[in-house]
Write a protein that binds this DNA or RNA. Structure first.
Lengths: 343, 343
DNA sequence: ACGGATATCCAAAGCGCTTTGGGAGGAATC
DNA sequence: GATTCCTCCCAAAGCGCTTTGGATATCCGT
């Protein structure tokens, strides 16, 4: 049924060499010939055999990722969403995955084994921390990789895709300040993760520029579940001098925070303003909140897809992708932000 | 560095044929010779080249799964946990994944394409519904597959791994009845999923055996998030004749339910009893609840690993695995269940 | 002691692709 | 007109494994 290179070449009256070169974009083939080849491919539905390509080229056509299985990271909704983007793009190019579940303490070994196995052409790395030792290790491994996020304190000479977390929360904070808010709380992700650190930094910076400072009593770090959002919000509301606004590192956290606020009988966008970071999770749209949420938006799935594109592009030596990308999150104002209430 | 078959054969003074056969368990090789080969493998660290094996055998050594991206299913914590088990086992055997994100309405096309691509040797199927059309389709596809869960109303002649949901909730309900509970509520998973249907059935059966019936006003179906657990529990508590016990289809749901109960000022295990199904999610241990939870337990990760084992075993024609497995969930009694309160 | 099993092993032919090392033909150079 | 240089194409050699189709040697019964 499926036709192979040899048959295709015969059909065209060409050698396998020429057909192969036509398909792989080599220059030494006549434009007209190439067209004929491409046409024949369309007609026959020819698809090169990946196993044969693997063997001939030594490439694995697959990308490796270690799947974190630490409590609260694995089975994280954000992880699934990112993975969906990665997979969606990979499948288009007929790339496989080697998913390697691993506890954080075994990660280094896992990465080494994965790289040495020859089963993957590139690695993917996420959940970056400050001074993350894994990037130095990966650099030494002589296998391409892309990092989702960025470390802090490391030199910047490694390929990454990150969103500008600092700016996102800087912008969000500034908006709140412009609306007259002075006491702003933060419900952040895990304290050790780089994105949490940067978001806090952005917030601190915006406050500082207006002569304000962040009250550590108004900061909570936790896993990004809705339960934690709820539990983080409550003490803020019971504070002697409660915040008039709050920033959440995820719409998932916001879900819990909103519940706590409602329960306290406060009105979002009036008594208290709220801005969340929106990863564009399909199950949780900020516009569907009872009071639509003002957000800093950046699609996690798109990030996954983009990283797959870069990884694959690098492996196939196609296209020229920037080594470092910093996406700016969009600030989208909805009803959950309003002027600070009068004292 | 890495040694290949040819070198290994030379080293041993044997032909490639013999070495290959020794490694793949063919009978026509002397036991002593086989030992020598195995010894040499250990010493040299020989690992067969998967790409070459693929090419020679026509097997892909990879398993395909479509990753559901419907709202509330993708990025489901339960999905991630299952995937971890699957991946953990697959990586041991050097098997890859082809993850194919797909919306439910495109699933059939996706499955067909996956099967036809030749990139996978077997498929995995989950989130079974009643009369699920996908199993008939997969049977027609002439590619091995294993189903996680079971359909309802279909003939049973397909390979599956499921837990005995009916019995699990039957047992749980009976325990509650023995403790004197008469009004029992149910916070279940999505209504269309087979496991939800069976759990409800088990509950109904236990009730019926004691002359009781399930009040539909005490049943909620929803995505299994903690938020939904909370929202499902609340109306039960406000009911004119509130339940004295509640069953939850997941510890995630239980998390929300517990919150609602606490908030209502009720004591778990005294005023109201609670049993949850425990998928053994590492981030959510029933024994760590403020009142440790009575549960029906069955590890999702173990199920994932088992399915991988069966799939891989089938592909390699190794071992003999039962086509159908029904795991019994363990009923583990902790402090969240107690005698029904006196009226 | 001899034909026929039986037990072990091997040479060689693929699997379907990429890539090296030319080779034919025509244009350009002198 | 001979030489060089492109342009465009091809034959063939792998990549590292599995598997077919024998070989060779040993052992059996008779």
């Amino acid at each position: 049924m499926a036709v192979n290179l040899k048959q295709l070449a015969e059909l065209l009256g060409l050698s396998q060499t020429t057909v192969s070169r036509a398909l792989n974009g080599f220059p030494e083939v006549n434009a007209e010939t190439r067209q004929r080849v491409l046409q024949a491919v369309r007609e026959t539905g020819y698809r090169p055999n990946r196993a044969a390509q693997r063997l001939a080229t030594g490439r694995a056509y697959s990308i490796g990722m270690v799947m974190p299985i630490a409590p609260g990271i694995d089975s994280d909704v954000h992880f699934g969403e990112f993975l969906a983007g990665l997979a969606e793009e990979a499948v288009k190019h007929d790339f496989h995955f080697v998913l390697n579940p691993s506890a954080p303490e075994d990660e280094e070994v896992t990465f080494r084994r994965l790289a040495a196995s020859g089963n993957v052409d590139a690695l993917f790395l996420a959940y970056m921390r400050a001074n993350d030792p894994r990037i130095a290790m990966l650099k030494s491994l002589s296998i391409p990789f892309v990092v989702h996020g960025r470390s802090i304190g490391e030199s910047r000479d490694y390929p990454f895709l990150d969103i500008d977390n600092t700016s996102a929360f800087y912008d969000a904070t500034r908006l709140l300040i412009q609306l007259g808010h002075q006491r702003i709380a933060l419900i952040n992700g895990p304290e050790y993760l780089a994105f949490s650190i940067r978001r806090k930094k952005g917030m601190v910076r915006a406050l500082a520029e207006h002569g304000l400072s962040l009250d550590e009593a108004l900061v909570q770090h936790s896993l990004m579940t809705d339960e934690h959002g709820y539990r983080s919000m409550q003490p803020f509301l019971q504070h002697a001098d409660p915040p008039t606004a709050v920033l959440c590192s995820s719409t998932v956290l916001a879900l819990g925070a909103v519940r706590a606020i409602n329960q306290a009988g406060l009105k979002i966008g009036e008594d208290i303003s709220l801005i969340a970071h929106d990863d564009v999770l399909p199950m949780l749209k900020p516009e569907n909140f009872s009071v639509p949420l003002t957000t800093t938006r950046s699609s996690l799935r798109a990030a996954g897809a983009r990283i797959a594109t870069r990884l694959i592009g690098g492996i196939l030596k196609r296209g020229d992708y920037p080594e470092q990308e910093l996406w700016r999150a969009e600030l989208i104002v909805r009803a959950s932000t309003g002027p600070a209430p009068q004292k």
